Lab assay of single mutants.
Amino acid sequence: MKVTIEENEETGKFTIKVKTEDGEEKTIEIPKENLEEILAKLPPNVEII
């Protein structure tokens, strides 16, 4: 699983794009305050880009 994290400076939010092993892609946008909480919940086999 690969996770790409991009900061949107205009909105102050982060866009998180997840690509699973089977090629499925999902995108979510979260507030900056929630980034550490989300990262802590990721499984250890995740590659963060």
Results as ranks from 00 to 15, higher is better:
Met1Lys: 01
Met1Asp: 06
Met1Gln: 04
Lys2His: 10
Val3Arg: 00
Val3Phe: 06
Thr4Gln: 06
Thr4Trp: 15
Thr4Tyr: 15
Thr4Phe: 14
Thr4Ile: 13
Ile5Pro: 00
Ile5Gly: 01
Glu6Pro: 00
Glu7Asp: 05
Asn8Leu: 04
Asn8Arg: 02
Asn8Ser: 06
Glu9Trp: 10
Glu9Gln: 11
Glu9Phe: 13
Glu10Cys: 13
Glu10Met: 11
Thr11Met: 05
Thr11Gln: 05
Gly12Tyr: 02
Gly12Thr: 04
Gly12Asp: 05
Gly12Cys: 06
Lys13Asp: 10
Phe14Ser: 03
Phe14Trp: 10
Thr15Ile: 15
Thr15Pro: 02
Thr15Lys: 05
Thr15Val: 12
Thr15Trp: 08
Ile16Asp: 02
Ile16Thr: 00
Ile16Glu: 00
Lys17His: 14
Lys17Glu: 05
Lys17Phe: 13
Val18Ile: 15
Val18Phe: 15
Lys19Ala: 09
Glu21Leu: 05
Glu21Ala: 11
Glu21Tyr: 04
Glu21His: 05
Glu21Pro: 10
Asp22Tyr: 10
Asp22Asn: 11
Gly23Ala: 03
Gly23Arg: 01
Glu24Ile: 12
Glu24Gln: 12
Glu25Asn: 04
Glu25Leu: 09
Lys26Cys: 15
Lys26His: 13
Lys26Ala: 11
Lys26Tyr: 15
Ile28Met: 12
Ile28Leu: 11
Glu29Leu: 10
Glu29Asp: 05
Glu29His: 10
Ile30Asn: 00
Ile30Ala: 05
Pro31Tyr: 13
Lys32Tyr: 11
Lys32Gln: 07
Glu33Val: 09
Glu33Asp: 10
Glu33Met: 06
Asn34Pro: 02
Asn34Gln: 15
Asn34Ile: 14
Asn34Cys: 15
Glu36Asn: 09
Glu36Pro: 12
Glu36His: 12
Glu37Phe: 10
Glu37Trp: 10
Ile38Tyr: 15
Ile38Asn: 02
Leu39Trp: 01
Leu39Ile: 07
Leu39His: 02
Ala40Gln: 10
Ala40Ser: 11
Ala40Pro: 02
Lys41Val: 09
Leu42Met: 07
Pro43Gly: 15
Pro44Val: 10
Pro44Glu: 10
Pro44Met: 10
Asn45Ala: 06
Asn45Leu: 05
Asn45Lys: 03
Asn45Thr: 09
Val46Tyr: 11
Val46Asp: 00
Val46Pro: 02
Glu47Asn: 07
Glu47His: 09
Glu47Ala: 07
Ile48Pro: 02
Ile48His: 04
Ile48Thr: 02
Ile48Gly: 03
Ile49Phe: 06
Ile49His: 09
Ile49Gly: 04
